[in-house]
């Protein structure tokens, strides 16, 4: 308002340098993330909404989507239970090999997903050490739906554990001890005190593993066998359509998967913000 405009609040004497940096970072992020995403979305809708729906209504595409969501949901549920349990065991108990176990939890993040697939095929494949046993019982794991879930469980193994662990380590030791002094046994104590405290983190971890499972490709492409309408998941479907030069079909499925992931991301962000508000309040 006044003649002397308020000056910059930061002590910057070379605004050019800063603007250069900002420009470079924005360009980098725009080129790497925003433009490609927009391009895919544009391509998906380029032939109109009707064509978009037609691509998705194709039974192969639709079944792939159903399978993907179902497998991801199962994965998330299993992770929620066993991940929370594992985190609790790691945080609360002392047993031989605990340290090694703890450091190896992150292994699925470090191992290439394709290698994961190979490993699972080697072990659970029809000629694998465990696979042959299952095979003899008439249960097929590899090139069948159980294999998909198994692969997803492997690659998403750390999510829930790593979400819950810090909460357990930092939080309510005192509350727990207070509960013990009040005569609660371990199970009551776990249910009443520990569980409510870690449930939000476990939920976030489960959502993360769900999101990750939706997009998983490398392990599944090896494990699933990719039989249309039976073991073909959405990402593999997209890959097939790209190879077949059906860009529209690939785009339509991509848009759906993107929408799902973004939705999950927003949900996670919202939960985190809300929790921060509650705790920070």
């Amino acid at each position: 308002m006044s003649a002397a405009r308020p000056r910059r609040a930061e002590p910057l004497r070379r605004p050019w340098g800063l603007w250069g940096l900002r420009g470079a970072v924005l360009t980098y992020l725009a080129l790497m993330i925003a433009v490609p995403l927009l391009a895919v979305i544009e391509r998906g809708f380029s032939a109109g909404l009707r064509a978009f729906w037609r691509e998705l209504a194709n039974p192969i595409a639709f079944d792939a989507l159903k399978l993907t969501v179902a497998a991801a949901a199962i994965t998330a549920a299993v992770n929620l239970v066993l991940g929370t349990l594992t985190a609790y065991v790691l945080a609360r108990y002392r047993f031989p090999g605990r340290g090694v176990f703890d450091s190896l939890v992150d292994m699925p993040f470090a191992i290439p997903t394709l290698v994961t697939g190979v490993m699972l095929v080697v072990l659970y494949g029809p000629s694998g050490a465990l696979g042959s046993w299952f095979h003899a019982k008439g249960i097929s794991i590899i090139f069948a739906r159980p294999g998909i879930v198994l692969a997803l469980l492997f690659v998403t193994y750390p999510f829930v554990i790593r979400s819950v662990q810090p909460v357990l380590l930092e939080a309510e030791r005192y509350e727990e001890e207070a509960a013990f002094t009040l005569g609660a046994n371990r199970w009551t104590n776990f249910r009443r005190i520990v569980l409510p405290a870690i449930l939000p983190a476990a939920g976030s971890g489960a959502l993360l593993s769900f999101a990750r499972a939706l997009g998983e490709f490398g392990s599944i492409v090896v494990v699933a066998g990719n039989i249309p309408r039976r073991t073909l998941t959405s990402p593999v479907y997209v890959f097939g359509e790209v190879e077949a030069h059906n860009e529209r079909g690939a785009s339509a499925m991509s848009v759906v998967l993107l929408a799902l992931s973004f939705g999950l991301l927003l949900l996670l962000d919202w939960r985190q913000r809300r929790r921060a508000e509650v705790l920070g309040g």
């Binding site: 002397a4 308020p6 000056r7 910059r8 609040a9 930061e10 002590p11 910057l12 004497r13």
Partner: peptide, 25 residues
């Protein structure tokens, strides 16, 4: 010290107007 910039007014150190100088100088 130059770690914040005043909206109005001036700062003179030893006879030198440093209001718009960065902290380094």
């Amino acid at each position: 010290a130059g770690l914040a910039v005043p909206d109005e007014g001036s700062i003179v150190l030893n006879g030198r107007d440093v209001t718009r100088l960065p902290p380094q100088n």
